[in-house]
Design a protein around this nucleic acid. Sequence first.
DNA 1: ATACTTTATGTAAACGTGTACATAAGCATT
DNA 2: AATGCTTATGTACACGTTTACATAAAGTAT
Lengths: 354, 354
Amino acid sequence: MSETNTRRFHKITIVDVARAAGVSHATVSRVLNNQGYIGEQTRLRVMAEVERLGYIANATARSLAGANSYLLGMMIPEFYGNYVGELSQSVDLELSNSGYNLAIFPTHGHPEKETWYINRIINGLVDGLIIMLPQSLNQYLPILKAQQIPYVLLDSERADPDSAVISTTNWQGAYDATRYLIGLGHRRIGHILGLETRLSSAERLEGYQAALHESDIAFDPLLVEPGFFRLDMGYEAARQLLALPNPPTAIFAANDASAFGAIKAAEALGINVPADLSVVGFDGQEKAELANLTTVHAPIALVGQLAARALIDRVKNPDGVPARETVATSLVIRKSCAPPRRVISEFADGNIGA
Amino acid sequence: MSETNTRRFHKITIVDVARAAGVSHATVSRVLNNQGYIGEQTRLRVMAEVERLGYIANATARSLAGANSYLLGMMIPEFYGNYVGELSQSVDLELSNSGYNLAIFPTHGHPEKETWYINRIINGLVDGLIIMLPQSLNQYLPILKAQQIPYVLLDSERADPDSAVISTTNWQGAYDATRYLIGLGHRRIGHILGLETRLSSAERLEGYQAALHESDIAFDPLLVEPGFFRLDMGYEAARQLLALPNPPTAIFAANDASAFGAIKAAEALGINVPADLSVVGFDGQEKAELANLTTVHAPIALVGQLAARALIDRVKNPDGVPARETVATSLVIRKSCAPPRRVISEFADGNIGA
DNA sequence: ATACTTTATGTAAACGTGTACATAAGCATT
DNA sequence: AATGCTTATGTACACGTTTACATAAAGTAT
């Protein structure tokens, strides 16, 4: 056994353990995986050598040979706000409880990055995947299905009907928020749109529209500006809205970050929140509490927990029915909203309300 | 018990490409990796087949064979606040610019989880690793070195001298914060300690002590309570401090989260911040701005960027000198601090000051 | 013409594991 | 005593790639 000199340190492999225990490496593998028949003395001898040599299985080789790695993945767009952080935290916690570990893959919403990760995953990088707010899901969903990779979708109630999906009531939350503003007396309500590629954005927009419709308020496309779920874009969107000839007295933003942007814009323009402008966000981050933002609270930790469970279920029971759960949002009322002050402009519009 | 990977679809391998192009799979590999000599026509033919068949290399097999995966990792404790989220974001962005991708591994500070990930990494899960605030670094640092895994440490200026380290001026930041409080007239200044296992905690404690010493204020161990970098523990710590017979008029917390906890505790006790209690944090998160917290701002995005660069440097140039950079913190003064009101108790102590 | 270098490609052996199949011993049943 | 089942273990191949080494053709300097 001459030393191969390129490798400084010989890693202990299953073969080393086998030799030390006087058995074949197949037997060691069987002991390690509780597979097939093993003599009791052999098992003990092998385990002893495993312990003595400090053997640790090579997960890469395992993966290549088609075995489980006990590593699960979560593909996310990016860490905007601490929404994703909270989610990751709860997913990770729940997975840990079941003996799995987590790897998080940020894509920045770049389709190329998504496919890059997906390719790695198909090759056995992880045993399963939670996919949050994908950009180009349709491109690889068939592949995931064909290769029977366990996965869970995290976004919209309307995502692919055959997939495991954990979602929140986007439509209902938006509807509730808008109803609340209408209830305060607002009739000119702006909306800062989320990322267009996300189903949740469309659902929130539609919830907003439905509430308007129900109160016989005509939907005005001028009152919708894109905010991309981002603070700076929310700022811009609000600037646009507030510069309108007939500006809104309230804004429902598709998420907290863009709501913060709207508040900043109002401040910059000398417009008082909530006296002159009411703002409602969506997500219910910790930050919203600090900033006294009225927001649609989505129980993100619960979503993460359910997603983790659903994924483990897919991994352990691939032929079962994919879990589909929708978690209810709730409107948390704080101090960023008030009845509208500029009643005059309403009369000018001829909208006196019920 | 084991779920056999019944692969329904034959994946296209390098051998398929080779056959289609009429060459050996070794030639295809060489074409793909720009290794050795390849005839121009052969290269073209192979590339055409790669394209036509939609071949994608199996990263797991590559990794087993000892090649690069262009996936880099970052091991973090957990997503407390959005500190880690911000860091991940900047690391990821910088790596992306250089064609690398990122996987994030959360450990919850559990040593077993750390070693679990490290084992995977040694087996080729990723090409290199950024290690943030490790719990049991000493256990695997020798292994990382021996196996020549490129890595970068993210914590303290004092971490292992042979390693690449990106850090912030923990000592100086704590010193500045404490000096500021002393400058306001405080002489009884409490400290909420960070996680004891983190070098940064010790450095911040020492900076605090140094500032006290410089102003001839005796260090009182009673004024230091552990906060574990957590909001709830910061709350508890502040409760303890404020219940003291001679309570502090100011608190320097080891991070923003525990500072928020302290503020909450003060509120709960009816103690006004800043009139009756000044509070300074550390980190300078976005949340600190919203909450008007005076804090030692650490430019986390810059740290992430430098760490990413340092790691790429290690990967590309393993025999070079490991990068070591310390990023300066800066005290951001907001509205959570004021001169002390209870001058009487100082006289009672006999500490009239210089 | 000889010897040597450069270019181009193929062969085969890793990398470390899982597992189908073969083999063999022990035991119970006929 | 022959048969069949259970238990235990080894052999050999598969997973998909990289790469050391072998081979061979072509070009170049002597």
